[in-house]
Design a protein around this nucleic acid. Structure first.
Lengths: 345, 345
DNA sequence: CCTCATCGTCAAACCGGTTTAGCGTCGACT
DNA sequence: AGTCGACGCTAAACCGGTTTGACGATGAGG
């Protein structure tokens, strides 16, 4: 015997499907006695409404989507992502909305995935990892599906946005390093076509005016190491480096220490995003806490509101916070100590 | 104007819905000329089949589910999870199957979520964080939905299982520490009702026979710190501690170092799961790489096979690997150095 | 020339819900 | 007594696909 349907429940309770439906939805008044018969029958048959049938009839999937175009390896080592999901879920859970995730590896698959989202798989999507001019914005607008953009997307759009101020903490970080005596401060950025990388890098440039000390990494440990090596080989090497994430920062300072530099005495180091281990390293890593959990909550709330018809608002989440730790603690010498180039790779 | 349906495409191509459907599915022969007209019409109208309508008609959601009963905070700091998801997704993506995730906070919600999965939201589920006697196994069996169990679940079940050998690396770790001269080796376990925690703890006990040096933590940094403090206060304190995950290990060794112990000289420390930062700490943390990515792939493959009708197999993934690093590198003194108790909290 | 199998398509039923027009019953009001 | 409105429920259409039985046209075989 197969799963019971609403028809089975109706038959058992001696009513029609419509009555069962109304008994649950409350959209039409149903007498108490009938309701009880219906609920009893449903209980006894262990009836659970079919999500797909309901989705078809109501044109509501009761789900929201997130599509990731990242390489699975990068996803695996990302500290932002699980916390963000946790935040999203904590909001969705209350309304029994599910989260549909899809990881794609090429543009064709990505478009197909978004189309599927728009056509019954989900009621709205959250866009992460925005590029400065992101094709997905226009694409989703054509698809007429609610979307929430995470980050400081500047382009034209009618979608809701959840912004954070990434520039201020970068500037504060640099001010902090300056106050500690640093004059040559470098920045290892993330890929500059990502808006969040770009905003951080621009803040760095506005504050320091030293484009020659800016490097573009890709958020991986390997690029953190390599670019750090490159910066330290400079004739007039930086005494402090601000990284766009903690993974690069840690790889960077490990490299520096392996080549005889003391952190923070010879090189001050700061990360971004405050990985949960960063406070436990030694020296503990200065970073910027960006509360991904909370941003996930806000994005989910905003999206649900959009879906419910309260459209197109912009929310700014004020949640970034400097976390000063040992890696930037000690005052640095005014001039960099001479460094034997042979010590460096 | 609303989204085009299969009826619109059929009308545009001058055929019926059935013909459109068959043109795509190939379940009935359709002439080349007709196919071309159909595809052209679909292309021109930008038709995408509705996932919910298809799900209803085929009784296939083209999605698999993962339900997490964890606290969102623990999810946020978990290193296993994103890598596992990445593995799952890399397999699902090939078949255009989506992943439906749901985080729940209580048993009622969890049951409802699984019921929804069984009733149209997904075609099968992956069970994580198995308990030694897990109600979900029987529950899902009643629900008649394919499921794959991750871990060494011992109970009666007809579900497929993806096993790994967690015991061997624990024993190897202890052998390694013994070879380095350690005699009193402690273990800070995870919650012992989890099968994976339990298996590791039992391996520890079989190898050492010292239940007095076993502590039950909860995978958080806080519990790592507290239980480490407790162990170090013992009159005959351990000279090495094996932790059930890296987070607890790092919190533990940071605590020990903050109280004057040198790692690894005074205390050797090993973690489990090999967090992506563990190799970058100093001292770098010895750990056990458990290849969550690969386990995700295997679990997803197994589940898709189950759904396709190739049922109930057991797969063992041989992927755990000891990663020896500095935190267990140096030989320890034969007897623990005297330790001033006032140094410890 | 008639029969019969094959091919390509159509029409209609079906999946399991939701939504809405309508209908009978009952009490209240005039 | 007759009219009216509210109430509680039924019947049927609908959501957008898939599946299946049937049917006309075509060509091969006897």
């Amino acid at each position: 015997m197969s799963r019971p349907t609403i028809g089975d429940v109706a038959a058992a309770a001696g009513v029609t499907k419509a009555t069962v439906s109304h008994a649950y939805s409350g959209k039409r008044p149903i007498s108490v006695a009938t309701k009880q018969r219906v609920f009893a029958a449903a209980e006894q048959l262990q009836w659970v409404p079919s999500s797909s049938a309901r989705a078809l009839a109501t044109r509501r999937a009761n789900a929201v989507g997130i599509i990731l175009a990242r390489d699975p390896d990068i996803l695996a080592s990302d500290t932002f992502f699980p916390a963000f999901i946790a935040g999203v879920e904590s909001v969705l859970a209350r309304q029994e909305v599910a989260l549909v995730m899809q990881v794609v590896t090429n543009r064709t698959a990505e478009e197909r995935a978004y189309r599927a989202m728009a056509h019954g798989r989900s009621d709205g999507v959250i866009l992460l990892d925005l590029h400065r001019s992101d094709w997905r914005v226009g694409f989703l607008q054509d698809l007429r599906i609610p979307a929430v953009l995470l980050g400081a997307y500047d382009g034209e759009t009618s979608f809701s946005r959840v912004r954070t101020d990434d520039a201020t903490p970068v500037k504060e970080l640099i001010a902090h390093l300056r106050a500690a005596g640093h004059e040559r401060i470098a920045h290892v950025a993330g890929p500059l076509d990502y808006v969040h990388s770009y905003v951080r890098a621009r803040a760095y440039l506005e504050e320091t005016g030293t484009p020659e000390l800016l490097r573009e990494g890709d958020f991986t440990a390997g690029s953190g190491r390599d670019l750090t090596a490159e910066l330290l080989r400079l004739p007039d090497r930086p005494t402090a480096i601000v990284y766009a994430n903690d993974t690069m920062a840690i790889a960077g300072y490990s490299h520096a220490r392996a080549h005889g530099l003391d952190v923070p005495r010879d090189l001050a180091v700061a990360g971004f995003d405050d990985d949960h281990l960063s406070g436990h390293l030694s020296p503990a890593l200065t970073s910027v806490f960006t509360d991904p959990r909370r941003r996930g909550e806000v994005a989910a709330e905003r999206l649900l509101a959009d879906i419910a018809g309260d459209l197109h608002r912009e929310v700014t989440v004020d949640c970034t916070r400097l976390v000063l730790r040992e890696s930037t603690a000690a005052a640095a010498p005014t001039t960099a100590r001479p460094l034997l180039t042979k010590e460096l790779p």
